[in-house]
Design a protein around this nucleic acid. Sequence first.
DNA 1: ACTATTTCCTGGATGC
DNA 2: TGCATCCAGGAAATAG
Length: 310
Amino acid sequence: MPELPEVETIARGLAKRVTGDTVDSVWLGQKKEPLKSSAREIVAALECSRIAAVRRMGKHIVFDLARNGVARAPSPAKGGGKNRKPETSVPPSTPAPSTAAAEPGGGARPTRAQWIVHLGMTGRLQVCDPQTEIEKHTHAILRLASGKELRFVDPRRFGRLSVAKAANFDAGGIEPLEIDLESFIGLFRGRKTPIKSALLNQKLLRGVGNIYADESLFRAGIRPRRRAATITREQLSKLHVAVKDVLKEAIALGGSSISDYVGADGEEGFFQLEHRVYGREGEPCLVCKTPIKRVVIAGRSSHYCPKCQK
DNA sequence: ACTATTTCCTGGATGC
DNA sequence: TGCATCCAGGAAATAG
């Protein structure tokens, strides 16, 4: 379940492998759930674009795309949205025959767009050779000029693909690793919601998920159900540090993972930050030996030490 | 304007 | 062994 540290790790791995490469063609599966933008838009943005950069914003992976502004011929029928048959896809479209090539380059403005990938719970991006067997639940394949393929696989389909045409994707919220103390405290002012819910709210902080929310609250000594507005400045100050520390430690370890996580290459195996409370219901607190409690907040399992956290 | 709850998905774990 | 049930969780949608 990729949260900020895992996404950061994946984005770095992808950046190493595909930056500078060009997307020759795109195949999209027939399942519509993973697509937040239309298939047509996604294909149009990706095909013939160069991957200028790969980076993380919150839990999103952002591919910055660049392309010289040569007017391309309208791509051949993409199944027009409606009557898409199963196994629809975008044909291995060889770049449209020369309609544009003759253009003397005059007024060719570079265009910018972004491909946004959210991995959801089980999403993975693999960089592999074309002959690698296509896994079940593969929803997108980008064929790259280098000969490699970039594939999006997501069994549970909580992941999402979208494009931002003007390269103006807004991930909402503030990066937890960048926020200063006063802004951090300001996020919670006047909020009656449990602090745990506030931490998970991507419009406030972007990138904190269930695991790191629990771990941060443990380190700060705050119970997850505490109403955000009732927490003292002093405690929020501790939380500010705790959130950053937890995320930084996890990034340093290459992202932690529980089950569905696979690295950018598709290889298994990342070190896991030792969880002090997450998933440890009933086990002794590592500080005071009190059994860790589990409650449900906002539909999420929330773990805390009833003695260390107030 | 907020906050709380429900919904979407599949595979793995559990129970009988 | 087989089948049903439950659970995990991010974020959008819905309800209060």
